[in-house]
Measured scan of single mutants.
Amino acid sequence: NQESVVAAVLIPINTALTVGMMTTRVVSPTGIPAEDIPRLISMQVNQVVPMGTTLMPDMVKGYAP
């Protein structure tokens, strides 16, 4: 099972992602793959992401799977 990126904290809208904001977990449905965390650093979320929420591609500005 592939791990997906999950919010480790509440991430406010338009916040640039940092390593500490993200964790990984096997979830269903799957979100952004864990191995993409290095690509996500400094990208901004386009909505509020509650802690424990799986990051989906459409939540991150400029992210393309």
Score class of each variant (00 low, 15 high):
Gly20Leu: 11
Ser4Pro: 00
Gly31Tyr: 02
Val6Trp: 02
Gln47Ile: 13
Ala34Ser: 14
Pro57Asn: 06
Pro57His: 08
Lys61Phe: 10
Val48Cys: 05
Gly62Ser: 10
Asp58Tyr: 14
Tyr63Val: 03
Ser42Phe: 08
Pro38His: 11
Ala8Leu: 13
Arg39Thr: 10
Val45His: 01
Thr23Met: 09
Thr54Trp: 02
Ala16Gln: 14
Gly20Asn: 14
Leu17Trp: 02
Val5Trp: 02
Thr54Asn: 02
Gly62Asp: 15
Pro33Ile: 09
Met43Gln: 10
Ala16Pro: 12
Asn46Met: 09
Pro29Asp: 14
Leu17Pro: 02
Gly20Arg: 09
Ile37Asp: 01
Val60Ala: 01
Pro57Ile: 05
Pro65Phe: 02
Pro33Ala: 06
Gln47Val: 15
Met51Pro: 11
Asn1Tyr: 03
Leu40Glu: 00
Thr30Leu: 15
Leu17Val: 03
Val5Ser: 02
Val45Asn: 02
Val27Tyr: 03
Val6Leu: 05
Ala7Lys: 00
Ala16Thr: 15
Ser42Cys: 07
Ile41Ser: 04
Asn14Tyr: 12
Met22Pro: 01
Thr18His: 11
Met51Asp: 09
Leu55Asp: 01
Ala34Glu: 08
Pro65Cys: 08
Ala34Thr: 07
Leu10Arg: 07
Leu55Met: 13
Gln47Phe: 08
Pro38Thr: 12
Arg39Cys: 04
Gly31Trp: 02
Met51Ile: 15
Pro50Val: 15
Met59Val: 05
Thr15Met: 12
Leu55Cys: 02
Met51Ser: 08
Thr23Lys: 12
Glu3Arg: 04
Pro38Gln: 15
Thr53Ile: 06
Val27Phe: 03
Gly52Gln: 06
Gly62Trp: 08
Ala16Gly: 08
Leu17Ala: 01
Ala8Arg: 09
Thr15Lys: 14
Val60Asn: 00
Val19Met: 15
Val26His: 11
Thr24Lys: 12
Met43Lys: 07
Val45Lys: 01
Asn1Gln: 15
Asn14Gln: 12
Asp58Trp: 10
Thr18Ala: 15
Ile37Trp: 06
Gln44Lys: 08
Val9Ile: 08
Ala7Pro: 00
Gly52Ile: 02
Val9Phe: 13
Glu3Cys: 06
Thr30His: 15
Met56Arg: 09
Val9Arg: 14
Val19Ser: 12
Pro65Tyr: 02
Lys61Gln: 11
Ala34Met: 07
Thr23Glu: 09
Pro50Asp: 12
Pro29Tyr: 10
Leu17Met: 14
Val6Arg: 02
Ile37Gly: 04
Ala34Gly: 09
Pro33Lys: 09
Thr15Arg: 07
Pro38Tyr: 07
Pro38Leu: 08
Thr15Phe: 09
Pro12Leu: 07
Ile37Phe: 09
Ser28Cys: 14
Leu55Ala: 01
Ser42Arg: 06
Val49Asp: 01
Tyr63Trp: 15
Met51Ala: 13
Ala16Phe: 14
Met56Gln: 14
Arg25Trp: 10
Gly20Phe: 11
Gly20His: 12
Gly31Ala: 05
Leu40His: 00
Asp36Trp: 06
Val26Asp: 15
Asp36Phe: 09
Asp36Leu: 12
Thr30Ser: 09
Pro12Thr: 08
Thr54Val: 10
Leu55Phe: 15
Asn46His: 07
Asn46Thr: 12
Pro29Leu: 15
Gly62Cys: 07
Pro12Trp: 09
Ala7Tyr: 02
Val5Met: 02
Ile41Met: 11
Ile37Pro: 00
Val6Asn: 02
Leu10Phe: 13
